[in-house]
């Protein structure tokens, strides 16, 4: 069984190769092998596998990467639409589409189901 891939051509990941210094930090933090390093420059090799966690962006010292990061959780999106901040689901998404709050206020095991 190969890698699981979600929807195609939706991911907001962007790479500015001119800024890339080829340090390879993004490759280390990416949990889905989205990025590859060839001839000292990073390139996106598995765009559709990206889950927009934002790890690569945060660990890029050259600010060469960009993504609208968040948690891909339908319940959190519904909660955001309904204006609920806390619910049985742990993930909370701001309507601003920017910051994401997984696990808000949840201390029981249900957190594992969402994050």
């Amino acid at each position: 069984m190969g890698q699981l891939i979600y929807l195609k051509d939706v991911v907001t990941l962007k790479l500015d190769q001119k800024k890339c210094m080829g340090c390879g930090m993004c490759l280390l933090v990416c949990p889905h092998a989205v990025l590859g390093l060839t001839n000292g420059k990073v390139e996106i090799v598995g765009r559709d596998a990206c889950m927009e966690c934002g790890a690569c962006v945060r660990n890029c010292p050259a600010e060469a990467l960009q993504v609208r990061s968040g948690v891909g959780c339908a319940v959190a999106v519904i909660n955001a639409m309904l204006g609920r901040k806390n619910s049985s689901c742990c993930c909370v998404i701001d309507l601003e589409e920017k910051s994401v709050d997984p696990c808000e206020g949840s201390t029981d095991e249900s957190r594992a189901s969402c994050c």
């Binding site: 890698q3 699981l4 891939i5 979600y6 929807l7 939706v10 991911v11 907001t12 949990p31 889905h32 596998a49 990206c50 889950m51 927009e52 609208r68 990061s69 968040g70 948690v71 891909g72 959780c73 339908a74 319940v75 959190a76 999106v77 519904i78 689901c89 993930c91 998404i93 994401v100 594992a112 189901s113 969402c114 994050c115």
Partner: peptide, 24 residues
Amino acid sequence: AMNFTGASTYTSLSGVRKEMRWAL
């Protein structure tokens, strides 16, 4: 099934939003 996206380890927020736009 759609709600299981939150538990999965590979769904992106952009993807989930796109799916929900027609699925919900």
